[in-house]
Design a protein around this nucleic acid. Structure first.
Lengths: 105, 105
DNA sequence: TTGACATGTCGGGAGTTCCCGACACATCAT
DNA sequence: ATGATGTGTCGGGAACTCCCGACATGTCAA
């Protein structure tokens, strides 16, 4: 379930696929073309399957082609998970003080 | 490099370790104890090594123990990567209109 | 109907992850 | 010094990831 989303993001090619799809829907062939220099077509198809399983893309047949489009709702869960940590890396002075105090125990 | 962060987040135990450490530093033994019901101590140690490689935790010897603390700065990169997608899942009416238009081409 | 094209899937090989029990080492208490 | 304790690491097995070439299926054009 939610695990699938984090797993989908764990490979650089899959992250780039999402970025490409953010620019609008593409066919499977167009996507394979984007990565043809590095990856075979079946490899790209596998990555698309992983993204689909995570609910991050949806596919739809259009005649002889198949269109993939971004369905980024599952990313909201990742963003939510990240939120509590945000206060740590955007540290205020008071947070920093707490941190140093803990450090010197 | 940045790959290591996404990879670190890809395992549920490692995500939970980060959440535990958000509550303050812990020794290796305390962390292993938190997961003793599911995982052996060496397994937890391996997960800690992955987190360390990603720069998400830092460890420090304290006498006979070793303290781990959260260093969440690398998470900022993930949050930044996520930002451009945010406008898709928090869709305004105008964004929705654009989307539908694209959809019907 | 036939041929060309777009795409999904299968079989399998190489590498990696994940996990554990066992061992090694350092530190502290006695 | 000795023994107990906290921790890292090693050896290895099971499962999984990643990738490819080859094949199967379905759609369109002629």
């Amino acid at each position: 379930m939610s695990d699938a989303v984090y797993l989908a993001l764990a490979h650089p090619v899959r992250r780039r696929v999402l970025q490409v799809l953010a620019g609008g829907p593409r066919t499977a062939g167009e996507l394979a073309g984007e990565f043809a220099a590095e990856l075979s077509r079946p490899a790209v198809a596998e990555h698309l399957a992983v993204l689909k399983k995570a609910g991050l893309v949806r596919d739809e047949p259009r005649g002889r082609h198949r269109h993939y489009r971004l369905t980024p709702e599952p990313l909201a869960e990742v963003a939510d998970w990240l939120t509590p940590f945000e206060r740590y890396w955007r540290r205020t002075l008071r947070d920093l003080a707490e941190f140093v105090e803990e450090e010197d125990v």
